[in-house]
């Protein structure tokens, strides 16, 4: 009996596999599983068996019936188009998992912090609302120094006891130079990344809120040649091993000598293109040997120690790296921008 059941099951499944239309399927179902169907007949014949036999064979027959019904149902669904024939399109996209994004400024800042940490520089923060003293005076920029022209400063409307406006929104991360020297003395090396402010109207190229990364290194025998070497390392890290650095004199009151730093244009490799205005060079930092007055303000013996300082425009680095043309996007909340990084 058992063999008979298995045989008929296989026969039915074989036939079912050949079915090409719903009509054929219906005929087959009636033929085997219908009220007068072949399989139904076999089940009826079980009544003649002993109780013991009925127990075992009955269960088997019932299982087979369920299996057959399941198979018939599947085939019907396939024929009705409800179910795929077993082909899964492997090129379909995955199920999308929601994901947030980090701001491009953070990405670039983190990269640079990591580089400097790897070279033994501390990463320091400083107050964004700073005293006139640390933002200017301590940096060798007394009041009414023409160098203050370079910077349109936001002053905070809160006068000190002398009736002066002595609080500013820092115009440069250099404001941390002297604080860092006062705290750590020499030898010392650190970078200070962060937000700076200049009071100017915003447009495609100008922002009153922007980011810099300041670097300071003080020690015995620190030289201009050392500064060049460190800056070259940074430039190569940013733009590849072929990158060169070009320094040219630039006046900053807090360094002497002072230099402006350019790197080989990473788009054209120095041949000249639109980005570098055909010069082959991109201006990305200011630098110089720390002025002895600044060292003194920092409580450092300028006879014994020397040092260099440099400042990168982080905003510019981000714009260059990602090809962002409009500086205002960096302070914008447009998700279409923020989602891209």
């Amino acid at each position: 009996m058992k063999e008979k059941l298995e045989k008929i099951k296989n026969e039915i499944l074989e036939n079912l596999a050949k079915v090409k239309s719903l009509e054929e399927w219906q005929n087959l179902e009636v033929k085997y599983l219908g009220r007068k169907g072949v399989f139904t007949e076999i089940l009826r014949s079980l009544t003649g068996l002993s109780i013991e036999e009925r127990k075992t064979i009955g269960k088997l027959a019932n299982d087979i019936k369920l299996e057959l019904q399941e198979n018939f149902k599947n085939v019907a669904e396939i024929l009705e188009g409800k179910k795929s024939v077993g082909f899964v399109d492997p090129t379909l996209p995955g199920i999308k998992l929601p994901q947030g994004h980090i701001h491009p400024m953070t990405i670039v800042q983190n990269e640079l912090e990591d580089l400097f940490i790897s070279m033994g520089f501390m990463v320091l923060d400083g107050p964004e609302m700073e005293s006139d003293y640390y933002n200017f005076e301590a940096l060798n920029i007394p009041k009414h120094h023409p160098a203050r022209d370079m910077q349109d400063t936001f002053y905070v409307d809160k006068k000190n006891d002398e009736g002066e406006l002595d609080l500013v929104m820092r115009t440069q991360t250099s404001s941390m130079q002297v604080r860092a020297m006062q705290k750590y003395g020499a030898p010392m090396r650190c970078v200070i990344p962060g937000r700076c402010f200049r009071s100017e109207a915003t447009d495609v190229r100008h922002e009153h809120t922007f980011y810099q990364l300041e670097g300071v290194m003080v020690g015995e025998g620190i030289s201009l040649a050392n500064m060049k070497s460190v800056l070259e390392t940074v430039a190569k890290h940013l733009y590849g091993p072929e990158t060169q650095v070009r320094l040219r004199p630039k006046f900053y009151p807090f360094v002497e000598p002072g230099a402006n730093g350019e790197v080989t244009c990473f788009i054209c490799g120095g041949k000249g293109c639109r980005l570098c205005k055909d010069t082959g060079w991109l201006e990305i930092f200011g630098s110089g040997m720390i002025h002895p007055n600044v060292l003194k303000a920092g409580g450092i013996d300028a006879k014994k120690y020397t040092g260099f300082a440099f400042g990168f425009g982080l905003t510019r680095l981000v714009m260059l790296k990602y090809g962002i043309g409009d500086i205002r996007l960096l302070q914008s909340d447009d998700l279409r921008f923020l989602e891209q990084f």
């Binding site: 990463v123 923060d125 030289s223 050392n226 060049k228």
Partner: peptide
């Protein structure tokens, strides 16, 4: 400035203070 050859500073190999 560009005629001066670069030279890495020689310093003590101390890890920086953590922020």
């Amino acid at each position: 400035f560009n005629n001066i050859r670069s030279l890495m500073p020689k310093v003590e190999m101390l890890p920086p203070e953590k922020n």
